[in-house]
């Protein structure tokens, strides 16, 4: 065959249709922005009763609850086919990545299915987030000793 991997890789790059970047970004901006706006409305509401930190936590919990409901009915998935990073990056996306495997792997049982898969997608985020926090903690501690 008149083909080698190098030529082919160039051919493939030419043949791949481009993503509609502008449309994708507008979706991501408006959906992502709206989720954050909803978060801010919740936060301001909670601020009337709680301090800033607790208001932030309650905002997260509320959004996670909303995302769990939307995931349950399949709405989150439908929105995400358009919104892309707009539904991926907010905390609702994190919640979706925990709720969806829990629902999906129920057929494999509560322990080996749901329990084992629940962090299948969100696990890396927690693992490396925690590690990064720990590393920063050590540096911060060393700085506080040194300083």
């Amino acid at each position: 065959m008149k083909l080698d991997p190098k030529t082919y890789s160039k051919m493939v790059r030419r043949a791949v249709p481009h993503s509609p970047v502008l449309k994708d970004c507008l979706w991501a901006f408006f959906v992502g922005g709206s989720i954050c706006l909803a978060g801010e409305i919740l936060r301001q509401t909670y601020l009337t009763w709680y301090d800033g930190e607790m208001a932030g936590t309650l905002t997260s919990i509320s959004l996670i609850f909303a995302s769990a409901v939307a995931t349950l009915f399949g709405w989150y998935q439908k929105l995400a086919t358009h919104a892309g990073a707009g539904t991926l990056v907010p905390i609702t996306g994190f919640a979706n990545s925990v709720v969806s495997p829990a629902i999906e792997f129920k057929t494999e049982g509560w322990v080996s299915g749901v329990g084992a898969h629940i962090f299948g997608i969100a696990g890396p985020v927690l693992a490396y987030g925690t590690l990064a926090g720990w590393v920063w903690g050590v540096i911060y501690w060393a700085m506080s000793k040194g300083g």
Partner: peptide, 11 residues
Amino acid sequence: IGGAICVVGQL
């Protein structure tokens, strides 16, 4: 700001 952070992810 929230929307912009998402746009970076989309890019």
